[in-house]
Write a protein that binds this DNA or RNA. Structure first.
Length: 917
RNA sequence: GGGCCUAUAGCUCAGCUGUGGUUAGAGCGCGCGCCUGAUAAGCGCGAGGUCACAGGUUCGACUCCUGUUAGGCCCA
């Protein structure tokens, strides 16, 4: 038997089936680097409408994790898709470099080595630390095929950035938006410093817990008429009692007034029995119960200080321990502080840097607060105010350095006022103007802005932008003149923040004298700004002429935690400096979850590092995974899921490979036929592709990348692989290489290969480039797929008609395939080409099939189709009796007609003559 | 404890929004089979869902309302 394989046009391409991404991707990255692909793209889009995504700076600490990778890839998909859509879409990545976490890490290292350094040296170490991680993270981001100005990113520790931050502060100071006020912070009396949340170490310790009665002197007249009436409070920090300024209840809880002896005690009803028992007053009777709200006009007398304070209602009262009435000292607790603000209570914090009581509490002046505990307890006992004393074990914060217990102490901090110039109202107005994706993001940030307190913008640390201010050496008056601030700004622009620290106060003061006392000797402020203030200023520092970027940005895209963080604080800074929002659209994505839907945490041991995924699967697979899920909710990741994404990747890649394989001898300039000359089937395929393209464009535009993923995958699997490509194999392989039937199919394949590469380029940029490179050369096309633009799609009336017609034919095809399967199961046929299909139909259905009769065998991939008019629609399958053409494997009557070529069908004989074999 | 959000086949998603209404769809995976001229590929058929749970509104709910459970982010 003659082997005709050599006479066929079988697919041939250098495009490998095996992606081998981990190994091959770096080659593409190197090529892009070499040709400066980002520069070329920007050059190609020069003058086009700008679409600006402004990068939220990740923190330069540690290697990137999957959440960081997810965020960066989403941004890159946006940038690349906007570029494909014809926009000039610049991307300037940045890093958040200052702040407590880096300083903390550096201090930890120093401590381990036993080194003690000056602040300036610590900052130098911090700078080096940040630089190191910027470099490491940058390599990881580049490896993910993210395009941007990696050689000139923005860093919050750049002098010009730092100066911009100061400029923002200056504008706020000038407009009277900043003020100083007391606020409690975690304080270490031994290190004499404030501590950040991350610097706290919680340890279980025994604390003195006192239950104290406070005598009611106003309100509750009806009860007081029956005997002395007391509110019962409970606290584990007796030393804060001198600073007690209120007692808090929950308006909705039930409280009981219980008489024991001749006194009446008020406790939350649920906690009454336990409290009375502990107080040694088991014999009591409830004389009244009421809601906490009824206590709002009650006032009580401090047990040992001449002071009458109010009862307030708050939402932090718990019924889990204590008495349901909470001792409030606004100078010594966060809850207490905010409650105090709400009720206009003063901030009393009579404790100095060393943790000693000041002269505001003469009885204990000079005593360490913890040492005062016992004395205060004793005093309460003597006064009869102590109902119970215990020493329970509980978790209490300690200093990470010296291990001493911490105290909450009010210190002077800087605030940005939310009401000055109606900042809050302005923020809410701007929020309404922006577009929030998903929509509920707006509700979320509105809720936060509505209820947020004034922004505390100061920190007592080293690694950050200083709050420039001068205090009079003699009277401590604050000096914050605009000229002074401008001078510092200029200095920092030149020398960075070290300029401020280095310069003597008098130099910065430049001869200014104290307005209050006339003094000319000054002390520099040593506070620094909250890092959120810095990152919140990024739009000012980056969206400017220096970077060639417009203000505001079109898009901010970060995790949903940034509603409280970057989105909100950027907005506040923008309103104070520019008067409007820094963004038009804000997109948020969810957080990483593991297989079980649990958050990914180092401590949970369920993290999958992006570096590992890149190494095992490749950046394109990681990116395809990003696109595979709806990022607006939380997204899961597991190796099993990655394997699924790999399957999708393979399907798309193999489809592309098939397209390319059949274009090996196709020169688009020479061989392409216009669609009007194509068979209807190919025009239908083109129409399907156009619809896909339109759908995909829309999905990118709506930032619904998972729609892109599913649409492309479905198209490759269903429209192409399972139908069009399968059907045209006969034409591609068996027709004459340059025959019109084959060239038409190739024209269509070329269009789709090229178009597909462009559609997927934003998601799998490396594979798209690989495909692009293996396309037949065409002078009219740019060298890189990323320099190309999407084609316009125009769905015509003809397309609609084709869709209608083929959907009916495909329905019949479905019935035929089912019948073929049954025949196969029955053992009468194997390959469908062994079959002859008999169709019965009536009316329209018959007309349609009859008109397509000559194409039906191809569409069904059977050797022959017999049509019968009339009767109910039916499909019958039987084995073909004709001989099999040894070249095209179809069983046709024409096989054997020619004695010279008895093993070929008529078509193959013709083709063989044509190709001279 | 509060605010916002999520919950449809083993997996990833459609359907649900301002218009509630025939047997809830797709792809992958899985099972069975075919092919060996996309071959560490390709094709076909098939089995999978009480739409988290419980109430309510309605002639009728995956779709609207309430609650519960689980999970997430941000606060406390």
């Amino acid at each position: 038997m003659t082997d005709y394989k050599d006479t066929l046009n079988l697919p041939k391409t250098a495009f490998p089936m095996k992606a081998d991404l981990a190994k091959r991707e770096p080659e593409f990255l190197a090529y892009w680097e070499k040709v400066d692909i980002y520069g070329k793209i920007r050059e190609a889009r020069r003058g086009r409408d700008v679409y600006l995504l402004h990068d939220g700076p990740p923190y330069a600490n540690g290697l990137i994790h999957m959440g960081t990778a997810l965020n960066k890839v989403l941004k890159d998909i946006v940038v690349k898709s906007k570029t494909m859509a014809g926009f000039d879409a610049p991307y300037v990545p940045g890093w958040d470099c200052h702040g407590q976490p880096i300083e903390h890490e550096v201090m930890k290292e120093l401590r381990a080595k036993g080194e003690e350094l000056e602040a300036a040296e610590v900052r130098a170490r911090c700078r080096a630390y940040a630089e190191k991680f910027v470099a490491l993270q940058r390599e990881d981001f580049k490896r993910l095929a993210v395009f941007g100005t990696w050689d000139t990113p923005y860093l919050t520790m750049h002098p010009h950035y730092e100066a911009t931050v100061l400029g923002a502060f200056r504008a706020m100071a000038r407009d009277g938006r900043v003020y100083r006020a007391l606020k409690p912070v975690h304080w270490c009396y031994s290190c004499e410093t404030a501590l950040a949340e991350a610097e706290l170490e919680y340890k279980d310790v025994k604390s003195p817990a006192v239950t104290v009665r406070l005598e009611v002197v106003e309100g509750l007249g009806e009860l007081r008429a029956q005997g002395p009436t007391y509110l019962v409070v409970w606290t584990t920090t007796p030393w804060t009692l001198p600073s007690n300024l209120a007692a808090a209840v929950d308006a909705g809880y039930d409280y009981a007034a219980a008489r024991a002896g001749d006194a009446i005690y008020i406790v939350a009803e649920d906690l009454l029995a336990g409290t009375m028992a502990a107080a040694g007053l088991p014999d009591y009777e409830i004389v009244k119960t009421f809601k906490g709200a009824e206590l709002t006009d009650v006032k009580y007398r401090h047990p040992f200080i001449e002071r009458v304070s109010p009862v307030i209602t708050t939402d932090f009262v718990t019924l889990e321990q204590g008495t349901g009435v909470v001792h409030v000292a606004p100078g010594h607790g966060a809850d207490d502080f905010y409650a105090g603000q709400q009720y206009g209570l003063p901030i009393l914090s009579p404790v100095d840097d060393r943790g000693l009581f000041t002269d505001e509490v003469p009885d204990y002046e000079g005593t360490l607060v913890f040492d005062a505990d016992a004395r205060i307890v004793e005093r309460l006992r003597e006064l009869g105010a102590l109902l119970n004393y215990e020493e329970p074990e509980h978790s209490y914060p300690h200093c990470w350095r010296c291990k001493n217990p911490l105290l909450f102490r009010a210190t002077k901090q800087w605030f940005l006022a939310m009401e000055a110039g109606d900042l809050r109202g302005a923020a809410l107005k701007e929020i309404a103007k922006a577009e929030w994706v998903p929509r509920w993001g707006e509700q979320r940030i509105v809720g936060m802005v509505e209820s947020r307190p004034d922004w505390c913008i100061s920190r007592q640390r080293s690694w950050g932008v200083p709050i420039p201010a001068l205090y009079c050496a003699s009277c401590d008056e604050l000096h914050l003149g605009d000229e002074f601030l401008a001078r510092v700004e200029e200095l920092v622009a030149k020398e960075g923040i070290e300029g401020y620290w280095r310069a003597p106060a008098e130099e910065l003061a430049a001869g200014a004298t104290c307005e209050k006392c006339g003094g000319s000797s000054w002390r520099k402020s040593e506070d620094i700004l909250d890092v959120w203030f810095e990152s919140g200023t990024s739009h000012l520092a980056v969206l400017n002429e220096c970077y060639g970027l417009p203000w505001p940005a079109d898009l901010y895209l970060e995790g949903s935690d940034q509603h409280r963080g970057w989105f909100q604080l950027s907005l506040l800074v923008a309103l104070c400096t520019k008067g409007s929002s820094p963004y038009r659209t804000v997109i948020t994505h969810g957080f990483m979850l593991d297989v079980d839907g649990k958050a990914m945490h180092k401590s949970a041991g369920n993290v999958i590092p992006p570096q590992e995924v890149v190494e095992k699967y490749g950046a394109d697979v990681l990116r395809l995974w990003v696109a595979s899920e709806d990022y607006r909710t939380d997204i899961g990741l597991s190796y099993r899921l990655l394997d699924q994404v790999v399957e999708t990747y393979r399907r798309v890649r193999n489809t592309a490979r098939f397209l390319l394989g059949n274009l090996g001898d196709f020169d688009p300039g020479r061989d392409a036929l216009p669609p009007e000359q194509w068979p209807e089937l190919d025009r239908f395929a083109r129409q399907r592709f156009k619809r896909l393209a339109r759908r995909v464009y829309r999905a990118y535009e709506r930032f619904e990348f998972h729609v892109v993923y599913h649409a492309v995958h479905n198209f490759c699997a269903v429209d192409l692989s399972a139908f069009y490509l399968d059907v045209i194999k006969d034409r591609l392989y068996c027709e004459a290489p340059d025959g019109p039937a084959r060239r038409a199919a190739q024209s269509c394949l070329y269009l789709m290969a090229r178009g597909l590469a462009k559609l997927v380029a934003p998601v799998i940029p490396l594979t798209a480039e690989d495909v692009w490179r293996h396309l037949p050369a065409d002078e009219r096309e740019p060298e890189s797929v990323h320099l190309a633009e999407w084609d316009e799609v125009d769905i015509t009336a003809e397309d609609d008609a084709l869709d209608e017609k083929f959907s009916r034919l495909l329905e019949t095809r479905g019935a035929v395939l089912k019948a073929l399967e049954e025949a196969r199961a029955a053992g009468s046929i194997g390959h469908p080409l062994e079959a002859v299909v008999a169709l019965a139909a009536d009316g329209d259905a018959y007309e349609l099939l009859a008109a397509e009769a000559e194409n039906l065998p191809a569409y069904f991939i059977t050797s022959q189709v017999e049509l019968e008019r009339g009767g109910a629609a039916a499909v019958a399958v039987e084995a073909a009796s004709d001989e099999k053409c040894q070249r095209c494997w179809q069983r046709l009557p024409s096989v054997g007609e020619d004695p010279d070529r008895p093993d070929l069908c008529e078509r193959c004989r013709r083709v063989m003559r044509r190709i001279g074999k």
